[in-house]
């Protein structure tokens, strides 16, 4: 593109979205080849997924607990505390689970992926792989992308389960709601298709988006300490914006 044109920030923004799109196509193109490096994918699932478990579980627990507390207070105004289980479950499955998990993963794993790839670029490791006839797209980018795609829905499920547990803990164990009411209302309202699967689709999309942004930012990070630092920040900022925007769009389409 013309150098003058590139200076305009709007054009630059659009161009970087385009770059990201092209990168996405390149990553998809490298996916078949990256199946050979499934061990690397496995390692990344470990890193993105398993290593995020603690934070995701803790946050899920507290989100469920605080939701139960808040909702209990609000619902008791209308005498509708029996709906607590339902409301906690629906909010978790449809919105909070996918979104908060995605934000947590962007902060916890996305930044790490960006910094790691950025440093690999800065220390010529990506070039070195290329020179050893190992496509860094297939060996570095695709496995991380795939790992995000795999790990995110699983993490969101764990988050939701912990949230339900937290909600149950507060609602039933602490505030003394009836256990059967809690579960009964939940199970009669929550639908496998509309709620759990829709939430799952969301988190798969978020997983793809977060890991794509993280990998892209790392891959295109200027090979300097400042460049890597900025790219890491951008990963969090862009991921958060895109997650919430996609969430809105997907919710609008799903309901």
């Amino acid at each position: 593109m013309n150098a003058n044109l590139r200076r305009n920030w709007l054009v630059q923004g659009i161009a970087s979205v385009g770059d990201c799109g092209l990168f996405f196509v390149a990553v998809l193109g490298a996916l078949p080849k990256s199946l050979r490096y499934w061990r690397e994918t496995c390692r990344q699932v470990w890193f993105v997924g398993a290593m995020s478990l603690v934070i995701v579980m803790t946050c899920g627990l507290f989100v469920g607990m605080v939701m139960a507390l808040q909702l209990y207070y609000t619902l008791s105004i209308f005498g509708g505390t029996a709906a607590l289980g339902t409301v906690v479950a629906l909010s978790l499955f449809r919105e909070l689970g996918p979104v908060i998990t995605a934000l947590l993963v962007a902060g916890r794993a996305g930044t790490a992926v960006t910094a790691e790839i950025g440093l690999m670029r800065a220390t010529d490791q990506l070039d070195a792989m290329g020179m050893m006839a190992v496509d860094p797209l297939a060996y570095v980018a695709s496995p991380r992308f795939l790992a995000g795609l795999i790990a995110m829905p699983l993490l969101a499920s764990v988050f939701n389960a912990m949230g339900i547990f937290g909600g149950h803990l507060v609602g039933v164990t602490w505030l003394g709601l009836d256990n059967g009411t809690f579960w009964g209302n939940m199970t009669s309202t929550v639908s496998l298709h509309k709620d759990i699967l829709d939430g799952l689709y969301k988190s798969i999309v978020f997983g793809g988006v977060v890991s794509l942004i993280a990998v892209f930012q790392g891959y295109t990070a200027p090979p300097t300490s400042e460049g890597v630092a900025y790219s890491t920040t951008r990963t969090v900022v862009f991921s958060s914006i895109v997650i919430l925007a996609f969430d809105f769009v997907m919710t609008a389409f799903m309901t």
Partner: peptide
Amino acid sequence: ALAYLATQTT
């Protein structure tokens, strides 16, 4: 976790 959600909360 997913199986739990799918079978116990729906």
